[in-house]
């Protein structure tokens, strides 16, 4: 064997462990991904199986507004409506504020200040929801009652405002990321054409960032929908549709607050428990749909629009 061949052989021997490591890493990553999918599937399947008693039982008023376990009435419409209503209020509050603040930070501030503001926002996003809930009970609740001259501030509006405050940091920081991700050269090219700053944003930056902003919004909505503790403390927990339907000043219920209150009281295996599990199945399905949708938007290239 020549010296060159020997060197090549040595190199190949050396390369083998590296390729083995690569294979091991690949297998580990693939295994983790498969495990995640299996866990989510098992959760969904378990929820579905546990929901069968209520789905199989006859007249339980599942698609109704009455919730009375003693009489076998398990209408999920009121909490489902409550969840969606609270989510809409949170969106109306958080999205305009979040979007405008993100535009302000990304388009007008220096990167140093941007980093500082984002760090603070990320801290806010990390505050446990129960802390928000306590603030809601202690202050927001009372302010809302005073403002609208109500006996109690534990209403859908309070829950919506609180959720809006809670999802604001998440939405804001992801929106800012989406705006900052648009390369600076687009701004420079547009401005060198004599375009004003607002025109640059409207015609160049926003069209490229909008998929990311949509993804941020959906991710924030997912959080809003899944929030339990804070909402439970301020919504009033009343199992009925507001009257009139879109009256935010009435007490209500969301799926999460319903689950939070009643899971402990229901007997495992009972129809009552099954109805609660079915509600959680619906909640998980909506959250997964929002997550998939947000992932689709966040990973979509601007040029795909």
């Amino acid at each position: 064997m020549s010296a060159t061949s020997a060197l090549k052989a040595k190199a190949l021997l050396k390369a083998k462990p590296a390729s083995k490591r690569r294979d091991a890493t690949k297998a580990y990553c693939q295994g983790s991904a498969v495990l995640s999918i299996v866990i989510v599937s098992v959760i969904l399947l378990t929820l579905l199986i546990q929901s069968l008693p209520v789905l199989m039982s006859g007249d339980n008023g599942l698609i109704g507004t009455q919730w009375n376990p003693d009489e076998g009435q398990f209408g999920i419409i009121a909490p489902l409506f409550g969840s969606v209503f609270v989510m809409i209020i949170a969106t109306v509050i958080a999205f305009p504020i979040g979007l405008l603040t993100a535009i302000y930070i990304s388009e007008t501030r220096s990167s140093k200040l941007r980093r500082l503001i984002k760090s603070i926002l990320e801290l806010l996003a990390g505050i446990p929801s129960i802390v928000y809930g306590l603030i809601g009970v202690a202050y927001l609740n009372i302010w809302v009652a005073d403002l609208f001259d109500l006996q109690s501030g534990r209403i859908i509006l309070t829950a919506g405002i609180l959720l809006g405050i809670m999802i604001l940091p998440t939405f804001l920081t992801l929106t800012e990321d989406a705006l900052s991700a648009v390369p600076q050269r687009y701004r420079e090219n547009a401005k060198s054409l004599g375009m004003y700053r607002h025109e640059v944003f409207k015609d160049i930056i926003f069209p490229q960032a909008k998929v990311g902003i949509a993804g941020a919004g959906l991710l924030a909505l997912g959080r809003a929908l899944g929030e339990t503790m804070a909402v439970m403390l301020v919504i009033g927990s009343l199992d009925r549709l507001p009257s009139p339907l879109f009256n935010p000043l009435s007490s209500g219920q969301t799926i999460t607050s319903k689950l939070g209150r009643e899971v402990g009281e229901s007997a495992f295996g009972s129809v009552h428990f099954s109805a609660l599990v079915f509600m959680s199945f619906i909640l998980v399905s909506i959250t997964i749909a929002l997550t998939i949708l947000s992932h689709y938007f966040l990973t979509r290239k601007p040029s795909d629009v």
Binding site: N189, S192, V305
Partner: peptide, 11 residues
């Protein structure tokens, strides 16, 4: 008018 080093067309 200005043209930069990297071609930059808008999407």
């Amino acid at each position: 008018g200005m043209v930069f080093q990297q071609p930059c067309v808008f999407p």
